[in-house]
Nucleic acid binder design. Structure first.
Ligand code: FES
Ligand code: FES
Lengths: 167, 167
DNA sequence: TAATCGCCGATTAATGTTGTCGTCGATAAG
DNA sequence: CTTATCGACGACAACATTAATCGGCGATTA
């Protein structure tokens, strides 16, 4: 059980979209080349991010992607939800509604009407994880990277994309 | 992306092991019959629970399973970990160590030495989920079920297993 | 008008999940 | 002591999902 690699691709790529000039874009080709990941697959991830309203795509020659809103308004959870979907990690298959006691029609109806404590507990736990992710924004991530990485490497990274940014 | 159905099977079945007389056991056959799930697959789940030290198996005729410790000492997370394994939901593939800048040997070494902020954030979020699950024990679950389910259905359930409990 | 880009659906290979089968060793009952 | 019953375990099969590719489409720019 695990999140798909697309979450990692997406989050890492979005970082590079934060600091570009307004109205500039970065293409899939640049992003995949810089990260050393599959171009076609990354393009699928960005389709999802576009549908989720996190980035805006510019088609045509010199096209590419840019953030659709302030990096302050994009949380980790937004990205995870866009890539993985909103379905919970614990997916209750309602096995309690299938038990021996449910051979009694009346009991079955009653069981189906009431929620399962186990399911609710699992969903509560997931919600706690989501809340942590909701509190981490791309802006926060960008500042954190400024703190952790060397200024030189940050500069080199921006240089790479500046050379190929489509204005 | 989801937890396997085994988590649901396991948690639901463990409930029935809480209230049985000491030294009594319940067999896979009873558990799977009551829940209406595959006998052979459920047996695999219980193998994992046994290895994790959550239940104790009694082989041979009239054999079965019983809790290996107080239901107060068995948390939801213990069960999830036993069935799903301890690997994190977000599995970092170290894509940052594969970037364009890492073509510079020196930079690559530096990158590999430092942790990724994104990965740490995701793990922190997961840890928050785990902590919720760690705080919910089987005892708590049992009391909650007493509160939520009808006394009659609880009684019927215990009756079902009492009829077939192996002493 | 031709080259370049994102978009989208079909497809594929690899991997993981769900579940079965058959064999083994342990054990209680006859 | 034999036999039927149980859990343990590994092989395997069916199915679903994931990671990734391919090819055609429409938009855009030079
Ligand atoms: S029925 Fe799905 S968790 Fe209880
Ligand atoms: S390298 Fe894996 S999350 Fe950053």
């Amino acid at each position: 059980m695990q999140y798909s690699i697309g979450v990692e691709y997406g989050l890492h790529c979005l970082v590079y979209l934060i600091d570009i000039p307004p109205d500039a874009t970065i293409g899939i080709k640049e992003l995949s080349a810089f990260q050393g990941v599959s171009e076609t697959y990354l393009s699928k991830i960005f389709s999802k991010l576009t549908k989720a309203g996190i980035v805006v795509s510019v088609p045509g020659v010199k096209g590419g992607y840019r953030l659709s809103k302030s990096p302050d308004d994009i949380s980790f959870w937004d990205v995870v939800e866009a890539v993985e979907g909103a379905t919970p990690i614990f997916q209750c298959k309602k096995i309690k509604d299938n038990s021996y006691l449910c051979q009694d029609e009346e009991y079955a109806a009653c069981s189906k009407a009431s929620p399962c404590v186990i399911n609710m507990t699992m969903l509560e736990a997931e919600e706690s994880m989501r809340n942590v992710l909701r509190n981490k924004t791309l802006s926060w991530l960008n500042e954190e990277l400024d703190r952790v990485l060397t200024p030189q490497s940050r500069k080199d990274t921006r240089q790479f994309f500046a050379n190929s940014t489509n204005v």
